[in-house]
Computed example of a mutant assay.
Amino acid sequence: MTAVEELPESAGHGVHGYSKRKDEHLKRLRRIEGQVRGLQRMVEQDVYCIDILTQVSAGTKALQAFALSLLEEHLKHCVAAAVEQGGPEADAKVAEATAAIARLLRT
């Protein structure tokens, strides 16, 4: 058992729905980070506003795609497991996922 596995899941550590694709997610986030750094360079270089806004849109779409992927994994793993076990934990996980979806829709 690793140190991370020994910590309780409530502490924010443990096996999560995204764990199996963690490397893929990190790669995607590094690409998004590169897009944001590119935006900084564009502003430093006084690039035309519309060109910067086009890149902002691309970065926003990339973050949204990441969020949807993470949400899907959460539903398949965390919510599904809670529903399978039943009880108040299931209702709490569904409510938590619903609130996350609402936040995503507001952005």
Rank of each mutant, 00 (worst) to 15 (best):
M1D: 14
A3K: 13
A3G: 09
V4S: 14
E5R: 13
E6V: 12
E6A: 15
P8R: 15
E9I: 10
S10M: 09
S10C: 03
G12S: 10
G14N: 10
V15G: 01
H16Q: 04
H16E: 03
G17Q: 03
S19M: 04
S19I: 07
R21G: 05
R21F: 00
K22D: 13
D23Y: 10
H25D: 10
L26M: 14
K27W: 14
R28F: 01
L29I: 12
L29A: 06
R30D: 04
R30C: 03
R30M: 09
I32V: 11
I32H: 00
E33R: 11
G34T: 06
G34K: 07
V36T: 09
R37G: 00
R37Y: 02
L39D: 02
Q40E: 15
Q40T: 05
R41C: 00
R41S: 04
M42A: 01
V43K: 03
V43Q: 02
E44G: 06
D46E: 12
D46T: 01
D46V: 01
V47D: 02
C49I: 06
I50E: 15
D51P: 01
D51N: 13
I52Y: 05
L53A: 14
L53H: 08
T54R: 06
T54A: 13
T54F: 09
Q55S: 10
Q55T: 05
V56H: 02
S57R: 06
S57A: 15
S57K: 08
A58L: 11
A58S: 13
A58M: 11
G59E: 08
T60S: 15
K61S: 15
A62G: 05
Q64N: 12
A67L: 08
A67N: 09
L68Y: 05
L70K: 08
E73C: 07
L75H: 06
H77V: 04
H77K: 11
C78Y: 04
C78N: 11
V79G: 07
A81I: 01
A81F: 02
A82I: 06
V83P: 03
V83C: 12
V83F: 05
Q85W: 04
G86A: 08
G86M: 03
G87Q: 01
G87W: 00
P88A: 14
A90S: 11
D91V: 10
A92D: 14
K93N: 03
K93E: 12
V94G: 07
T98L: 11
T98N: 05
A100H: 05
A100W: 03
A100G: 05
I101A: 00
A102T: 13
A102V: 08
A102Y: 05
A102F: 06
A102Q: 14
R103G: 09
L104R: 01
L104C: 04
R106F: 00
R106D: 00
R106P: 00
R106S: 09
